[in-house]
Write a protein that binds this DNA or RNA. Structure first.
Length: 963
RNA sequence: GCCCGUGUAGCCCAAUCGGCAGAGGCAGCGGACUUAAAAUCCGUUCAGUGUGGGUUCGAGUCCCACCGCGGGCACCA
């Protein structure tokens, strides 16, 4: 193989301009260079050691740059022009960093387990592996044609047995560990489960009932241990989705109580499922957001999702024992005039009085003769309501009185206890102290049920609202034991908490909205759990050397699905249908025994929780990742994020839709692996960038059916009236999709324009983080740019190089170096749209010259290379270079040429431009003032008025302020 | 309802610290070239920055209120 790609010698076009840069020529050039890069291994990235190290590369002499795209999911529908946007952007960045001298790691693997793949397979009646692999092949082909500089040796798919092995291995690491909340000064840390066993054995840690560890039955011990594992089986209320036939994580259920995928209703059911103890990491997941460079929007979403709130637990004495509430406003305790518990609260039965007390208001009884009847009826009614109904009813507060009272610990007042569905069992303690004076919901309830309202925070003068939730001095807050009057909210909180603690009524506490992560799915197409159950139905890990546990063949890939509303159904996973797989005889240390396999599979988030690590060491079969290699690519870098830098991927680009799913789960796994000492970085992704979406217009006819967008015409132009086959159609703007009939495939772009033009167009559309509309017509602008660039180097008539070796003139040099300067900055800041416009400007400048100096066009070719790499390689080689452009240094600006010889100084009178002066860039204030005042135009504008003041911003502006 | 982002020409978008509203592209118009067309080249029209106030010598940029669009959260105690 020669060092440059072999050129086709035949002219690509006919007529007068046989060597024009047409789509056909572009295609030929692009395919040739893609083959060259593959054959040469141009983008093979060396590791510091191991199988992918290269002896002649001194890795330590280069800065590393680990670049990642969000895991693509190979859909059966193929790509549309929106998909490559992020891949192009990361490719440009990677190529740019490589030209800046970095050792760039960039590869692409496939997230291939999951529901859509399974559904597609069920639809087409084929094995999901077959359809998934075909989809991957299609996607690889479409992406290869884009010319991405990926290290092809580092690709993989989550369904590869070699990958599944390590996904399961990590699961077992999590299973075999517990969270020691005392470790690291109270921050807590995951530790091996063996440490916990040792602590029980030594007596350092007491058993729940105080018996000695040695006195416990084996099964008792295992139950205790299993209760501490970070991955644990639990019988608890979970999200059951009959329409999908599986349970779902909280993060996969929308606010409307429906499945994020498929939009089916979801019901709460008590089921035995795998959970991951992500709540143990709640604080670190919140706090460590400070240490990473992510969009504020995503950080906020994660903070909201975790929902940490600080406050106090307060116990109110009742006849049925203490009723514990959580409140973020313990300072308002004196204003608690009633209590509300969730209908599902365990104390409700005991709190329900035998008869209505005297002076019970009619409104409180719900019209029932006894509390028991009222409570039963209300609970039934609440249970029948779906989440949606609860929301639709919104602020209409409902509830009934239980007939019993609690004692407000601050002042001994007897306050009534209600049940109401605006209090949720799943948050805090499922009970609240209601303080209508400072809480809008409680105010509404108090108004509806005619309950007393006491303000305990003085609202500002003129406050005419109802509940006052703002800052102010405490009032009406003095009791026998404590007075808060006059204190601000924060001080009052502090004082009441210490009083509660000393009086034994409660303590300061923190609650979270985050729940443990439900980790099993009753689907086929996912990783099997590396777990079997023994005769006690307790989980036992399959030994590491027996991994991976692979999926068996099944008669039917689909789980049993039900009518979407059939809440009282049971999950029935496909794996349960193969008893010969489910029941196995194994020797797990105490002789051959019969075990039952877990028939659930992992959610498809499992594979994406750690795939960043697989890129580093993709073939390692001995270890998750070699520690030296992991440290090199992902270890903490104080020079980047300061002494607290957590390590992680240098740049991670993807859409914002994974803000609280993948991105939260991956952080969690990373932290577990970090705690257990397997990795050196405790955050997976140091810098996150959310790209916008490419959107498009779609058109519907009178019946609301989508019509092919590319056949719609606008008549007359720019009128906003659209027609398809002569009938008027309605335009809407939004997603690209096959069903919307507005999808344009990258293949069509390659065919009509070539990959480089497509890349330039996508990068020039606007800021990467913004969403913007696709406009196929506008692509020709990008093509014209590349054609002009081509013509600046190559004769369209003869195919010969037309650049000259004479030095460039001064003006050209200045334009060149200013362009270099701007392009470098823009590229580093991912502002490819402005970088391209600067290059177009320079290119247009060169077009106007009689002959194009090599001195000017070579740097332009280098600058274009990250964005349009094929044409750049081609021109570079035709200009006589024998080595790939991929490692050619990115041009550096000459500082001397960045300073203009003269600058235009704008002269304003009263803020209006009246004159322009050509001055030296070093002109000082007084010179400029003199020049300005001497200007005829200024004198005319002053029209005899005096000068009050002259503002000079040398050298660009003088503003004369008339008297 | 609350929070975040955003609004510049027919369209996509530029505009360091507040300092000439326009870099680039699309579309349109005119011209050159051509028998003609395409392509190419040259030239060019079009907004005063969503609305209303304010600060300032000077506001697209800063502050306040409102409107439109996009997104997030939504009885979380």
């Amino acid at each position: 193989m020669s060092t440059t790609a072999e050129r086709a010698t035949v002219p690509s076009a006919d007529g007068d301009v046989p060597y024009r840069y047409t789509a056909a020529l572009a295609g030929e050039i692009e395919k040739r260079w893609q083959d060259y890069w593959d054959a040469e291994g141009t983008f093979h990235t060396p590791n510091p050691s191991g199988a992918l190290a290269e002896p002649d590369w001194d890795v330590s002499s280069k800065k590393k740059f680990f670049l990642m795209d969000m895991f693509p999911y190979p859909s059966g529908a193929g790509l549309h022009v929106g998909h490559p946007l992020g891949y192009i952007a990361t490719d440009v960045t990677g190529r740019f960093r490589r030209m800046c001298g970095d050792n760039v790691l960039h590869a692409l693997a496939y997230d291939a387990f999951g529901l859509p793949a399974e559904q597609y397979a069920v639809q087409t009646g084929q094995h999901p592996r077959k359809t998934t692999e075909e989809n991957i092949t299609t996607m690889r082909r479409q992406l290869r044609r884009l010319g991405l500089a990926h290290d092809g040796r580092r690709t993989f798919a989550t369904i590869d047995p070699g990958y599944i092995k390590w996904t399961q291995w990590i699961f077992l690491q999590i299973f075999e560990s517990w969270y020691d909340t005392e470790a690291d000064g109270g921050r807590g840390r995951a530790r091996p489960i063996a440490d916990l066993v040792a602590a029980y054995e030594s007596g350092e840690r007491a058993t729940p009932d105080g018996r000695a560890w040695a006195d416990l039955e084996e099964v008792e011990r295992r139950r205790i241990i299993d209760g501490h594992r970070l991955a644990y089986v639990s019988e608890s209320p979970v999200n059951w989705c009959p329409g999908l036939g599986t349970v779902l994580a909280n993060e996969e259920v929308t606010a409307e109580g429906r499945s994020e995928r498929g939009n089916y209703p979801v019901f709460k059911r008590n089921l035995r499922q795998w959970m991951m103890r992500i709540t143990a990491y709640a604080d670190r997941l919140v706090d460590d957001l400070e240490r990473i460079d992510w969009p504020e929007k995503v950080k906020t979403m994660q903070r909201n999702w975790i929902g940490r709130s600080t406050g106090a637990n307060v116990r109110f004495p009742t006849a049925a024992g203490d009723l514990e509430v959580f409140t973020t406003r313990p300072d308002t305790l004196f204003g608690a005039t009633f209590m509300v518990v969730a209908p599902e609260h365990p104390l409700v039965d005991e709190l329900t009085a035998v008869a209505w007390p005297e002076q019970t208001e009619d409104a409180w009884t719900g019209g029932y003769g006894s509390p028991a009847e009222a409570v039963t009826a209300y609970r039934k009614q609440a249970a029948a309501k779906t989440e949606v109904e609860r929301q639709v009813e919104g602020k209409d507060k409902t509830g009934v009185f239980t007939g019993s009272f609690a004692t407000n610990p601050t002042n001994g007042e007897q306050i009534p206890i209600f049940i109401a569905d605006y209090v949720l069992m799943g948050y805090g303690t499922g009970a609240i102290m209601a303080v209508p004076g400072q809480d809008e919901r409680d105010w509404e309830f108090a108004e509806r049920f005619r309950l007393p309202i006491i303000r305990t925070v003085q609202p500002p003068e003129g406050f005419d609202g109802k509940a006052y939730v703002g800052e102010g001095p405490a009032i009406n807050s003095a009791g026998d034991g404590v007075s808060l009057n006059g204190l601000g909210v924060a001080e009052a909180k502090e004082k009441i908490i210490s009083w509660l603690e000393s009086a034994g009524y409660g303590e300061g506490t923190v609650t979270y909205r985050l729940r443990d992560w439900l980790f099993s799915r009753q689907r086929y197409w996912g990783e099997p759990f590396p777990i079997v159950y023994d005769e006690n139905d307790l989980p036992v890990a399959i030994p590491l050397e027996q991994l991976p546990v692979l999926l068996p063949e099944v008669p039917d890939y689909s789980p049993k699905t039900y009518d979407a509303d059939a809440a009282d159904t049971e999950p029935e996973p496909p794996l349960a249908r193969v008893p010969e797989w489910v029941y196995v005889e194994m020797d797990l240390g105490d002789g051959p025994k019969r075990y039952r396999r877990d028939t659930n599979t992992m959610p498809n988030w499992a594979g994406s929780c750690w795939y960043h690590m697989r890129y580093l060491d993709p073939t390692n079969d001995e270890k998750l990742v070699d520690p030296e290699i992991e440290r090199y690519w992902m270890g903490p870098r104080p020079e980047r994020g300061g002494p607290n830098d957590p390590g992680g991927v240098d740049l991670y680009v993807g859409g914002v839709e994974h803000a609280v799913l993948h991105l939260l789960y991956a952080r969690f796994w990373q932290k577990v692996l970090f705690d257990l000492g397997h990795v050196s970085s405790d955050e997976p992704y140091y810098k996150l960038f959310n790209q916008g979406y490419i959107q498009a217009y779609a058109f519907t006819d009178a019946r609301g059916q989508y019509v092919p967008a590319d056949e719609v015409v606008e008549e007359p132009a720019d009128s906003g009236q659209f027609f398809w086959n002569g009938q008027p159609v309605h335009r809407e703007y939004g997603k690209i999709g096959k069903s919307l009939k507005n999808a344009v495939s990258p293949d069509e772009m390659y065919e009509s324009y070539g990959a480089d033009t497509f890349r330039v167009y996508e990068m020039s559309m606007g800021p990467l983080e913004q969403s913007k509309p696709w406009d196929t017509r506008a692509v020709s602008g990008a093509q014209r740019f590349l054609q002009r660039l081509w013509r600046n180097v190559i004769s369209e008539e003869t195919g010969e190089v037309v650049t000259v070796d004479e030095p460039a003139d001064d003006a050209t040099r200045r334009v060149l170096h200013q362009t270099i300067d701007a392009v470098r900055t823009d590229m580093a800041g991912l502002r490819f749209n402005t970088a391209i416009s600067r290059m177009i400007e320079l290119n247009n400048h060169l077009t106007k010259l009689d002959s194009v100096p090599r001195e000017a066009v070579e740097p332009l070719v280098q600058m274009v290379a990250p964005i349009a790499p094929h044409i750049a390689e081609e021109l570079w080689s035709r200009l006589g270079h024998t080595e790939t452009l991929a490692f050619a240094p990115f041009p550096e600006p000459d500082p001397a040429l960045l300073i203009a010889e003269t600058v235009t100084c704008v002269v304003q009178v009263a803020g209006k431009v009246r004159d322009r002066l050509e001055v030296s860039p070093s002109a000082d204030d007084s010179t400029l003032e003199e020049l300005a005042l001497a200007s005829d135009a200024v004198q005319r504008a002053l029209d005899g008025r005096g000068v009050r003041k002259v503002i000079v911003r040398a050298p660009k502006l003088v503003n004369v302020v008339p008297a």
